[in-house]
C-alpha cells in the first residue's frame, strides 16, 4: 500500500501532530513492507512536491490541529490547490483532527466538510479520527500519554492490515464528546486549587510574561482618545 501522510500543523515537524504521526507510523510499519512518506503542508515552498506526492499516493492521510474550529488556513490553501486540479481517481483519503480542547464537540463540525471535500474529488472517504486534549502532550509525564500513544500505534497497525481506521479505536479516541458533570466538577475543583492553567502559567513564568498575562495591547478606548 502506497500511503502518503500530510502533516498540516503550522508548527510543521515540531508539532503535536508529528508526535501522533510517529506513533501511527510505528504501528503501521510493523505490518507493512512500505513505510509511508511524510509531507509538511506548511512547507508552502514545497507545494509542487506535496501536490505530486498527493497525486501519486494510493492512500492519503491528512492530519491537522483544529484552528479556530476548522482546518488551519495553510491546510485550506492546500485543499484549494488540490481541488483546482481535479485529476484524482480511486484514491482513498482519511483525516486525523486533533485539538487542545479536551472534548471533541469542538472538532466534529469540520468532519462534514472533509467528507464532502473527498466526494468533490471523486475519491473514497476513509473517515476522520478526532482526538481532543492533545496540547502539551510533549511535556506530559509518560504515564499520561501512554494510552494515547498506544492507541495511535494500534491505529497504525490496523490501518496497515485493513487499509482503514479501526472503528473501535476511532470511537475510543473520540471521547469525551462533551464534558460530563463529573469532569466539570473536577475542572472546578482544579480551578479552585489553581491547577487548571498550570501549563499556561508555567510557560508565562518561564518567559517572564506572567505579570503581563492580562494585557490588551490592541484596545483603543474612547476615553484615552479624547484626553
Amino acid at each position: 500500500m502506497k500511503l502518503a501522510i500530510f502533516n498540516g500543523s503550522p508548527r510543521r515537524k515540531n508539532s503535536n501532530s508529528t508526535v501522533l504521526v510517529e506513533h501511527f507510523v510505528d504501528g503501521f510499519n510493523r505490518f507493512s513492507d512500505y513505510s509511508p512518506t511524510i509531507h509538511y503542508v506548511a512547507d508552502t515552498k514545497r507545494i509542487n512536491d506535496n501536490l505530486e506526492a498527493f497525486d501519486s499516493a494510493e492512500y492519503v492521510l491528512i492530519i491537522f490541529p483544529l484552528y479556530t474550529d476548522c482546518m488551519p488556513g495553510v491546510v485550506k490553501e492546500f485543499f484549494e490547490k488540490i481541488c483546482e486540479r481535479k485529476i484524482y481517481q480511486s484514491k482513498k483519503i482519511g483525516f486525523i483532527v486533533q485539538s487542545g480542547f479536551p472534548e471533541i464537540i469542538h472538532s466534529i463540525w469540520i468532519e462534514k466538510y472533509l467528507q464532502k471535500l473527498v466526494n468533490r474529488l471523486n475519491c473514497d472517504y476513509l473517515g476522520t479520527v478526532i482526538k481532543g486534549g492533545v496540547e502539551g502532550i510533549k511535556i506530559m509525564p509518560p504515564i499520561m500519554t501512554k494510552k494515547l500513544y498506544k492507541n495511535f500505534e494500534m491505529l497504525g497497525e490496523y490501518f496497515a492490515n485493513h487499509q482503514e481506521f479501526s472503528p473501535k479505536i476511532k470511537a475510543k479516541l473520540a471521547k469525551p464528546y462533551k464534558m460530563s458533570y463529573v469532569r466539570i466538577l473536577f475542572f472546578k475543583l482544579f480551578k479552585s486549587l489553581g491547577f487548571t492553567n498550570f501549563y499556561w502559567n508555567m510557560n508565562l513564568k518561564k518567559n517572564e510574561a506572567f505579570e503581563k498575562r492580562y494585557d490588551r495591547p490592541y484596545e483603543i478606548s474612547i476615553a484615552t482618545e479624547t484626553k
Binding site: T68, P72, E77, Y214
Partner: peptide
C-alpha cells in the same frame, strides 16, 4: 473548495491573539 477562502482563514486563525489562553467552562 466548499469553504471560505484560505486568505480569510489566514487572518481568522490569527484572531486568537485577541483571546486569553486560560480555559473556562461556558455552557458546559
Amino acid at each position: 473548495a466548499g469553504f471560505t477562502g484560505s486568505l480569510l482563514k489566514k487572518i481568522t486563525d490569527r484572531l486568537i491573539v485577541l483571546l486569553h489562553p486560560y480555559i473556562e467552562i461556558i455552557q458546559k
